[in-house]
Amino acid sequence: MTDRPDRETDLQLMERIGWHQIKAVEDRAMKRNFWKAFAFMSPAIVLVCGLLLMPVVYNIYFSFTKWKKFAGLDEFAGFSNYAKLPGNPYFDTAFYNTAIWVAASVVFPLAIGFGLAVFLRGVAFGNVFKNIIFLPRILAPTAVAVIWFHVYAPHGVLNSLLALVAGQPVDIGWLYQDNTVTPAIIATFVWQSVGLVMVLVLLGLSAIPKDPLEAARVDGATNSQTFWHIVMPLLMPTLVVVTILSVLSGFTTFDLLWVMGVAYPGQRTLSLAVFMYFESFQKGSWAFGSAIAVIIGIVVFSVTWIQTVMQNRVDKMTR
Protein backbone atom coordinates (compact mmCIF):
# COMPACT_ATOMS: atom_id res chain seq x y z
CA MET A 1 0.00 0.00 0.00
CA THR A 2 1.11 3.52 0.44
CA ASP A 3 2.91 5.48 3.10
CA ARG A 4 1.84 8.62 4.79
CA PRO A 5 3.94 11.32 3.17
CA ASP A 6 4.54 13.00 6.50
CA ARG A 7 5.73 9.96 8.41
CA GLU A 8 9.32 9.99 9.53
CA THR A 9 11.60 7.18 8.51
CA ASP A 10 13.51 5.00 10.95
CA LEU A 11 16.61 7.08 10.47
CA GLN A 12 14.88 10.38 11.17
CA LEU A 13 13.30 8.95 14.28
CA MET A 14 16.58 7.68 15.61
CA GLU A 15 18.32 10.94 14.86
CA ARG A 16 15.64 12.84 16.69
CA ILE A 17 15.79 10.76 19.82
CA GLY A 18 19.27 9.33 19.77
CA TRP A 19 20.22 5.68 19.89
CA HIS A 20 22.15 5.97 23.15
CA GLN A 21 19.15 7.35 24.91
CA ILE A 22 17.11 4.30 24.07
CA LYS A 23 19.96 1.94 24.79
CA ALA A 24 20.40 3.57 28.17
CA VAL A 25 16.79 2.98 29.10
CA GLU A 26 16.96 -0.68 28.08
CA ASP A 27 20.28 -1.25 29.80
CA ARG A 28 19.03 0.22 33.04
CA ALA A 29 16.06 -2.11 33.00
CA MET A 30 18.19 -5.15 32.12
CA LYS A 31 20.54 -4.38 34.96
CA ARG A 32 17.68 -4.08 37.42
CA ASN A 33 16.42 -7.42 36.18
CA PHE A 34 19.83 -8.98 36.52
CA TRP A 35 20.05 -8.21 40.21
CA LYS A 36 16.53 -9.51 40.75
CA ALA A 37 17.44 -12.73 38.98
CA PHE A 38 20.72 -12.95 40.84
CA ALA A 39 18.89 -12.84 44.13
CA PHE A 40 17.03 -15.93 43.07
CA MET A 41 20.08 -17.71 41.79
CA SER A 42 22.35 -16.77 44.67
CA PRO A 43 21.89 -19.73 47.03
CA ALA A 44 22.52 -22.11 44.17
CA ILE A 45 25.49 -20.14 42.84
CA VAL A 46 27.09 -19.69 46.24
CA LEU A 47 26.77 -23.37 47.13
CA VAL A 48 27.90 -24.67 43.77
CA CYS A 49 30.83 -22.30 43.44
CA GLY A 50 31.92 -22.78 47.01
CA LEU A 51 31.68 -26.53 47.28
CA LEU A 52 31.88 -27.80 43.74
CA LEU A 53 33.89 -25.36 41.67
CA MET A 54 36.42 -23.79 44.00
CA PRO A 55 37.65 -27.21 45.19
CA VAL A 56 38.56 -28.05 41.61
CA VAL A 57 40.81 -25.04 41.39
CA TYR A 58 42.43 -25.89 44.70
CA ASN A 59 42.90 -29.49 43.73
CA ILE A 60 44.75 -28.50 40.60
CA TYR A 61 46.87 -26.17 42.69
CA PHE A 62 47.67 -28.85 45.25
CA SER A 63 48.85 -31.21 42.57
CA PHE A 64 51.67 -28.84 41.78
CA THR A 65 53.00 -28.74 45.33
CA LYS A 66 55.09 -31.14 47.37
CA TRP A 67 52.43 -31.68 49.93
CA LYS A 68 52.82 -34.84 51.98
CA LYS A 69 51.40 -35.63 55.39
CA PHE A 70 51.74 -32.39 57.31
CA ALA A 71 54.18 -30.36 55.31
CA GLY A 72 55.11 -29.31 51.88
CA LEU A 73 51.99 -27.45 50.87
CA ASP A 74 53.90 -24.30 50.18
CA GLU A 75 56.67 -25.88 48.17
CA PHE A 76 56.26 -25.75 44.47
CA ALA A 77 56.85 -29.07 42.77
CA GLY A 78 56.18 -28.40 39.13
CA PHE A 79 55.07 -31.48 37.28
CA SER A 80 56.99 -33.89 39.47
CA ASN A 81 53.88 -35.46 40.93
CA TYR A 82 52.61 -36.21 37.47
CA ALA A 83 55.99 -37.49 36.40
CA LYS A 84 55.95 -39.98 39.24
CA LEU A 85 52.74 -41.53 38.02
CA PRO A 86 53.61 -43.56 34.91
CA GLY A 87 56.44 -45.36 36.66
CA ASN A 88 54.53 -46.12 39.81
CA PRO A 89 53.56 -49.83 39.62
CA TYR A 90 50.37 -49.28 41.58
CA PHE A 91 49.34 -46.53 39.25
CA ASP A 92 49.95 -48.63 36.16
CA THR A 93 47.90 -51.50 37.48
CA ALA A 94 45.17 -49.18 38.69
CA PHE A 95 45.02 -47.48 35.31
CA TYR A 96 44.85 -50.80 33.55
CA ASN A 97 42.19 -52.10 35.89
CA THR A 98 40.18 -48.92 35.51
CA ALA A 99 40.26 -49.27 31.76
CA ILE A 100 39.04 -52.84 32.03
CA TRP A 101 36.42 -51.87 34.55
CA VAL A 102 35.04 -49.03 32.45
CA ALA A 103 34.99 -51.10 29.31
CA ALA A 104 33.29 -54.00 31.03
CA SER A 105 30.86 -51.86 32.98
CA VAL A 106 29.75 -50.23 29.77
CA VAL A 107 29.71 -53.14 27.38
CA PHE A 108 28.29 -55.94 29.49
CA PRO A 109 25.25 -54.20 30.91
CA LEU A 110 24.58 -52.73 27.49
CA ALA A 111 24.83 -56.02 25.64
CA ILE A 112 22.98 -58.07 28.22
CA GLY A 113 20.43 -55.37 28.92
CA PHE A 114 19.78 -54.88 25.25
CA GLY A 115 19.51 -58.60 24.66
CA LEU A 116 17.13 -59.03 27.55
CA ALA A 117 15.00 -56.12 26.38
CA VAL A 118 14.61 -57.55 22.91
CA PHE A 119 14.17 -61.03 24.28
CA LEU A 120 11.56 -60.17 26.88
CA ARG A 121 9.42 -58.11 24.56
CA GLY A 122 6.14 -59.85 24.08
CA VAL A 123 6.99 -62.79 26.31
CA ALA A 124 4.21 -63.96 28.56
CA PHE A 125 4.63 -62.72 32.16
CA GLY A 126 7.10 -60.25 30.72
CA ASN A 127 6.32 -57.63 33.33
CA VAL A 128 7.12 -59.96 36.22
CA PHE A 129 10.52 -60.78 34.76
CA LYS A 130 11.25 -57.16 34.01
CA ASN A 131 10.48 -56.15 37.56
CA ILE A 132 12.69 -58.87 39.00
CA ILE A 133 15.61 -57.91 36.82
CA PHE A 134 15.15 -54.24 37.67
CA LEU A 135 14.87 -54.84 41.42
CA PRO A 136 18.60 -54.81 42.24
CA ARG A 137 18.70 -51.25 40.93
CA ILE A 138 16.93 -49.90 43.98
CA LEU A 139 19.50 -51.23 46.43
CA ALA A 140 22.38 -49.03 47.43
CA PRO A 141 25.77 -50.03 46.00
CA THR A 142 27.08 -50.50 49.53
CA ALA A 143 24.32 -52.89 50.46
CA VAL A 144 24.82 -54.76 47.20
CA ALA A 145 28.53 -54.98 47.94
CA VAL A 146 27.91 -56.40 51.40
CA ILE A 147 25.51 -59.04 50.07
CA TRP A 148 27.73 -60.12 47.23
CA PHE A 149 30.78 -60.15 49.48
CA HIS A 150 29.16 -63.04 51.24
CA VAL A 151 27.98 -64.57 48.00
CA TYR A 152 31.59 -64.76 46.96
CA ALA A 153 32.88 -65.71 50.42
CA PRO A 154 34.77 -68.97 50.81
CA HIS A 155 31.76 -70.49 52.59
CA GLY A 156 29.42 -68.49 50.49
CA VAL A 157 26.59 -68.97 48.05
CA LEU A 158 28.59 -69.31 44.88
CA ASN A 159 30.91 -71.89 46.25
CA SER A 160 28.08 -74.00 47.67
CA LEU A 161 26.23 -73.87 44.33
CA LEU A 162 29.38 -74.96 42.54
CA ALA A 163 29.85 -77.66 45.13
CA LEU A 164 26.44 -79.05 44.23
CA VAL A 165 27.47 -79.23 40.59
CA ALA A 166 30.99 -80.50 41.19
CA GLY A 167 29.95 -82.98 43.83
CA GLN A 168 32.67 -81.87 46.21
CA PRO A 169 33.31 -78.83 48.40
CA VAL A 170 34.54 -75.79 46.54
CA ASP A 171 36.58 -73.22 48.41
CA ILE A 172 37.67 -70.51 46.02
CA GLY A 173 38.37 -67.13 47.51
CA TRP A 174 36.89 -65.17 44.64
CA LEU A 175 37.65 -61.83 46.12
CA TYR A 176 41.12 -62.77 47.33
CA GLN A 177 42.77 -63.62 44.07
CA ASP A 178 44.25 -61.47 41.32
CA ASN A 179 42.61 -63.13 38.40
CA THR A 180 39.11 -63.44 39.84
CA VAL A 181 38.54 -60.31 41.84
CA THR A 182 37.80 -57.91 39.00
CA PRO A 183 35.57 -60.27 37.02
CA ALA A 184 33.68 -61.06 40.21
CA ILE A 185 33.00 -57.43 40.97
CA ILE A 186 32.06 -56.84 37.35
CA ALA A 187 29.49 -59.60 37.64
CA THR A 188 28.02 -57.91 40.68
CA PHE A 189 27.88 -54.63 38.84
CA VAL A 190 26.13 -56.25 35.91
CA TRP A 191 23.62 -57.80 38.28
CA GLN A 192 22.74 -54.40 39.57
CA SER A 193 22.76 -52.30 36.46
CA VAL A 194 21.33 -54.49 33.72
CA GLY A 195 17.83 -53.64 34.89
CA LEU A 196 18.18 -49.96 34.14
CA VAL A 197 19.66 -50.48 30.69
CA MET A 198 16.90 -52.94 29.91
CA VAL A 199 14.18 -50.49 30.96
CA LEU A 200 15.70 -47.66 28.95
CA VAL A 201 16.04 -49.82 25.84
CA LEU A 202 12.46 -50.97 26.26
CA LEU A 203 11.34 -47.36 26.47
CA GLY A 204 13.30 -46.62 23.34
CA LEU A 205 11.86 -49.61 21.53
CA SER A 206 8.29 -48.71 22.41
CA ALA A 207 8.90 -45.22 21.06
CA ILE A 208 9.58 -46.61 17.61
CA PRO A 209 6.50 -46.16 15.42
CA LYS A 210 4.92 -49.37 14.16
CA ASP A 211 4.37 -48.25 10.58
CA PRO A 212 7.90 -48.55 9.18
CA LEU A 213 8.21 -51.99 10.80
CA GLU A 214 4.98 -53.26 9.33
CA ALA A 215 5.76 -51.75 5.97
CA ALA A 216 9.11 -53.52 5.98
CA ARG A 217 7.52 -56.84 6.82
CA VAL A 218 4.99 -56.45 4.05
CA ASP A 219 7.84 -55.59 1.73
CA GLY A 220 9.33 -58.92 2.62
CA ALA A 221 12.16 -58.01 4.94
CA THR A 222 13.32 -60.68 7.33
CA ASN A 223 13.35 -60.09 11.05
CA SER A 224 17.04 -59.44 11.25
CA GLN A 225 16.96 -57.05 8.28
CA THR A 226 14.16 -55.10 9.92
CA PHE A 227 16.16 -55.06 13.08
CA TRP A 228 19.45 -53.80 11.74
CA HIS A 229 18.17 -51.30 9.24
CA ILE A 230 15.17 -49.79 10.99
CA VAL A 231 15.21 -50.55 14.70
CA MET A 232 18.89 -49.93 15.40
CA PRO A 233 19.17 -46.47 13.83
CA LEU A 234 16.08 -45.30 15.69
CA LEU A 235 17.43 -46.71 18.92
CA MET A 236 20.84 -45.08 18.55
CA PRO A 237 20.11 -41.93 20.57
CA THR A 238 19.00 -43.94 23.58
CA LEU A 239 22.03 -46.19 23.36
CA VAL A 240 24.39 -43.25 23.09
CA VAL A 241 22.98 -41.55 26.16
CA VAL A 242 23.22 -44.77 28.12
CA THR A 243 26.81 -45.26 27.03
CA ILE A 244 27.96 -41.79 27.98
CA LEU A 245 26.38 -42.04 31.41
CA SER A 246 27.86 -45.48 31.97
CA VAL A 247 31.35 -44.30 31.08
CA LEU A 248 31.10 -41.36 33.45
CA SER A 249 30.00 -43.43 36.38
CA GLY A 250 32.46 -46.16 35.49
CA PHE A 251 35.41 -43.89 36.17
CA THR A 252 34.16 -42.72 39.50
CA THR A 253 32.87 -46.00 40.94
CA PHE A 254 34.11 -46.32 44.46
CA ASP A 255 31.60 -48.01 46.73
CA LEU A 256 31.50 -51.44 45.16
CA LEU A 257 35.24 -51.69 44.70
CA TRP A 258 36.10 -50.49 48.15
CA VAL A 259 33.66 -52.63 50.08
CA MET A 260 34.06 -55.82 48.08
CA GLY A 261 37.77 -55.42 47.56
CA VAL A 262 38.53 -55.18 51.25
CA ALA A 263 39.66 -58.78 51.30
CA TYR A 264 41.90 -58.39 48.32
CA PRO A 265 45.50 -57.65 49.14
CA GLY A 266 46.00 -55.43 46.12
CA GLN A 267 42.89 -53.41 46.87
CA ARG A 268 44.42 -50.09 46.09
CA THR A 269 45.00 -51.05 42.49
CA LEU A 270 41.41 -51.91 41.76
CA SER A 271 40.80 -48.55 40.15
CA LEU A 272 42.20 -45.04 39.92
CA ALA A 273 39.50 -43.76 42.24
CA VAL A 274 40.39 -46.26 44.97
CA PHE A 275 44.09 -45.67 44.41
CA MET A 276 43.60 -41.94 44.87
CA TYR A 277 41.79 -42.53 48.15
CA PHE A 278 44.54 -44.72 49.50
CA GLU A 279 47.33 -42.37 48.54
CA SER A 280 45.58 -39.38 50.06
CA PHE A 281 43.75 -40.56 53.12
CA GLN A 282 45.78 -43.57 54.10
CA LYS A 283 49.29 -42.60 53.12
CA GLY A 284 48.92 -38.86 53.42
CA SER A 285 50.50 -38.07 50.05
CA TRP A 286 48.12 -35.26 49.42
CA ALA A 287 49.79 -33.70 46.42
CA PHE A 288 50.19 -37.05 44.76
CA GLY A 289 46.57 -37.87 45.42
CA SER A 290 45.52 -34.54 43.97
CA ALA A 291 47.47 -35.30 40.85
CA ILE A 292 45.71 -38.63 40.48
CA ALA A 293 42.36 -36.86 40.87
CA VAL A 294 43.34 -34.43 38.14
CA ILE A 295 44.34 -37.32 35.89
CA ILE A 296 40.96 -38.94 36.47
CA GLY A 297 39.32 -35.66 35.52
CA ILE A 298 41.34 -35.35 32.34
CA VAL A 299 40.64 -38.93 31.31
CA VAL A 300 36.91 -38.46 31.93
CA PHE A 301 36.85 -35.27 29.88
CA SER A 302 38.74 -36.82 27.01
CA VAL A 303 36.55 -39.87 26.85
CA THR A 304 33.38 -37.80 27.00
CA TRP A 305 34.68 -35.47 24.34
CA ILE A 306 35.62 -38.34 22.04
CA GLN A 307 32.20 -39.87 22.58
CA THR A 308 30.41 -36.65 21.72
CA VAL A 309 32.47 -36.24 18.58
CA MET A 310 31.78 -39.82 17.56
CA GLN A 311 28.11 -39.36 18.29
CA ASN A 312 27.98 -36.36 15.98
CA ARG A 313 29.67 -38.37 13.24
CA VAL A 314 27.26 -41.25 13.69
CA ASP A 315 24.34 -38.81 13.63
CA LYS A 316 25.56 -37.36 10.37
CA MET A 317 25.99 -40.81 8.87
CA THR A 318 22.56 -42.04 9.77
CA ARG A 319 20.82 -38.95 8.38
Partner: peptide, 16 residues
Protein backbone atom coordinates in the same frame (compact mmCIF):
# COMPACT_ATOMS: atom_id res chain seq x y z
CA UNK B 1 28.20 -22.06 35.77
CA UNK B 2 25.72 -23.94 37.92
CA UNK B 3 25.66 -26.93 35.64
CA UNK B 4 29.46 -27.11 35.71
CA UNK B 5 28.97 -28.66 39.12
CA UNK B 6 28.21 -31.97 37.46
CA UNK B 7 31.04 -32.37 35.05
CA UNK B 8 33.90 -33.15 37.42
CA UNK B 9 34.55 -36.59 38.93
CA UNK B 10 34.01 -36.77 42.68
CA UNK B 11 37.61 -37.53 43.47
CA UNK B 12 38.56 -33.98 42.60
CA UNK B 13 36.53 -32.59 45.48
CA UNK B 14 37.81 -34.86 48.22
CA UNK B 15 41.11 -33.38 49.27
CA UNK B 16 40.21 -29.67 49.06
Amino acid sequence: LIFAGTIFPFQIYLIP
